[in-house]
Simulated assay, not measured.
Amino acid sequence: MGLRVALAVHPDSGKGAAARVAGTVAARLRGATDRLDLLAANTVEESHALMREAHGAGLDALVVLGGDGAAHQAVQFCAGTDIALGVIPSGTGNDLARALGMPTNPLAAVDAVAAALLAGRTRKMDLGRLGDTWFSTVLCAGFDASVNARANRMRWPSGPRRYDLAVVAELASFRTRRLTVTTDTDRLDLEATLVAVGNTGWYGGGIPICPSARADDGLFDLTVVGRASRGQLIRMLPTLRTGKHLNHPAVRTLRARQVTLSGNDWPAYADGEPLGTLPVTVTCVPEALTVLG
């Protein structure tokens, strides 16, 4: 039957960036496959329907052209199966592509994916799981989740600058709350500003919130920021881009296979997508996803 691959395109990703390069991406992938199916969807419902149809026909790999939201939907499709996932970044954050070491330019990324397909080169990565939902990068709650929600509502600017402006806007209203973090070996009860549970290191378009996180060690890395005044947060924010926030006295780090966050009703976001409110329990599932590369 040969190598069958589906290309999932989210045309609206990156303010239309995905749509502009979709034809070129498809042409380059065809040279590495025996059959390429194109799945174009602008909504989650459309994406799910197209992926279910492709799955029923038999697939070896799914390549997604889009941002972290598109990648999140593709992860739900590929997790726990033998279908390999390839990611070509063309969105706002592109944090999963970053964690996979993909080039930031989508045309360079498709060449890397095509080379992996031709060579049959795959590897396994861990995923986080919350109920029936998988996540590949970072689950967060508190200040960072509030920033994520605000950034998702903004239509301008594009790229990481949107996240930066959302941070400034959220500083005016955010307040710390009581939080309990329970892991396999630890329990923290504290007045908290934010908590991030990292399967990989980055969120928010390249912020290394959990800089030591690895997606192949079977464990989450946690970054917990305790009580911090508005002034302290303002001084801490520039260090987030360098990973030096871990040196701040308000920051605690943990490692765990399973984590429960409770004590308040903060919204929880993972891969930039809303996943309800606390309390939540998340588990790191080793080697749950096959990726190209």
Rank of each mutant, 00 (worst) to 15 (best):
M51R: 13
A119G: 13
G201S: 14
Q258C: 12
L240G: 02
D271V: 05
A145N: 04
V225A: 15
R235G: 06
P157R: 04
A149W: 00
G231W: 13
V138E: 06
V44Q: 12
G86M: 14
L96N: 03
V197F: 00
L62F: 09
A196Q: 01
K15N: 14
A108E: 15
I207W: 00
A32N: 06
P89R: 03
V282P: 00
P11Y: 08
C284P: 00
G31C: 07
T290D: 07
V63Q: 02
M1K: 05
P274L: 04
A115Y: 00
G204R: 08
A172P: 00
A268T: 15
V282I: 07
R35A: 15
L233Q: 06
A256M: 06
L107S: 09
V110D: 02
V63E: 01
A116D: 10
A70E: 00
F135S: 07
T183I: 10
L59K: 11
K124N: 13
S173T: 14
C210R: 04
V147W: 02
L222F: 01
L118G: 11
D184A: 09
D186T: 15
V138M: 07
P89A: 05
C78A: 15
V25M: 05
D186S: 13
A17R: 14
G80R: 07
V195L: 02
T281K: 08
D271K: 01
A17V: 08
M102N: 08
N148L: 03
R175W: 05
A250K: 08
T193M: 02
D95Q: 12
A109H: 06
R161L: 15
G206Y: 01
L233A: 04
G69Q: 05
L194C: 09
R28D: 15
T200M: 02
N94K: 07
M236H: 09
A268H: 08
L246V: 14
A109Q: 10
N199R: 05
P286G: 09
F143E: 10
R230I: 01
R123L: 04
V224K: 01
N152T: 12
E273D: 13
I234E: 06
A215S: 15
A228L: 14
G142S: 06
L219N: 02
G16P: 09
Q76N: 06
A84R: 03
C78R: 02
A213H: 04
A112G: 00
D34R: 08
G243D: 07
R214L: 14
A108D: 15
L165S: 01
H248C: 06
G276R: 03
V195W: 00
T193L: 03
K15G: 10
E191D: 14
A71Q: 09
T242Y: 00
A49Q: 13
V285G: 03
T104P: 02
A61K: 10
A97R: 04
G272R: 08
R161Q: 11
L117T: 10
P249F: 04
H248E: 12
A61H: 06
L65G: 10
H248V: 05
G2W: 01
D37A: 13
D186Y: 02
I209C: 02
N105Q: 11
R28V: 10
D221M: 01
G101I: 12
G198R: 07
G293Y: 01
S47K: 01
L39H: 06
V225Y: 05
T260H: 04
R227E: 12
A109E: 09
A196T: 03
T277P: 00
L190E: 09
T253M: 05
N94A: 09
A151M: 09
P279M: 09
T176F: 01
D37S: 14
V259T: 05
A70N: 04
